[in-house]
C-alpha cells in the first residue's frame, strides 16, 4: 500500500473512541425505542421501573445512559473499527427507525 493509499484509508476510518461510542449510540437509540415498546405493552415492567427511581421515565433515561456508556467502553476495549460513512449510516438509520418506531407505536396503541 502506497503512502497515498494509506492516508486515504486512514481518512476513511474514524478513531477508536468515535467508532466505539458511535456504535454504542446507535444501539442505545434502538434500545430506547425497544424499551419504550416493552414497558408500554407490559405493565409489570413499567411498575418495576417506576419503583426503582420513583418514575418509569427517570429509570428509562438512566438505563439509556448506562447502556450507552457500558457499550461504548466495551467496544473501545475490543478495538472496534468503523469507516465514517458506515458509522454515519448506522447513526442516521437508528434515529429514523427509532423515531419512526416510537411515533408508529403510539399511533397504533
Amino acid at each position: 500500500m502506497s503512502n497515498l493509499e494509506a492516508n486515504a484509508a486512514g481518512r476513511s476510518q474514524v478513531d477508536g473512541a468515535t467508532a466505539a461510542f458511535g456504535l454504542a449510540a446507535a444501539i442505545t437509540i434502538l434500545f430506547n425505542t425497544l424499551l419504550a415498546w416493552v414497558k408500554d405493552a407490559y405493565d409489570p415492567l413499567n411498575t418495576f421501573m417506576a419503583s426503582l427511581t420513583g418514575h418509569h421515565w427517570r429509570t428509562h433515561g438512566i438505563a439509556d445512559v448506562i447502556v450507552f456508556l457500558v457499550l461504548g467502553f466495551v467496544f473501545l476495549s475490543q478495538g472496534v473499527k468503523l469507516d465514517g460513512v458506515r458509522l454515519a449510516v448506522y447513526l442516521a438509520g437508528s434515529c429514523i427507525i427509532a423515531g419512526g418506531g416510537l411515533a408508529l407505536w403510539f399511533v397504533l396503541v
Binding site: 449510540a25 437509540i29 425505542t33 421515565w57 439509556d64 445512559v65 447513526l91 427509532a98 416510537l102
Partner: peptide
C-alpha cells in the same frame, strides 16, 4: 412519543 423521543438527541448530544 415526545417523552421517549427526547432520549435520542440526549444520547447524540452526549456523543
Amino acid at each position: 412519543t415526545k417523552e421517549h423521543l427526547f432520549f435520542i438527541p440526549l444520547i447524540l448530544a452526549l456523543y
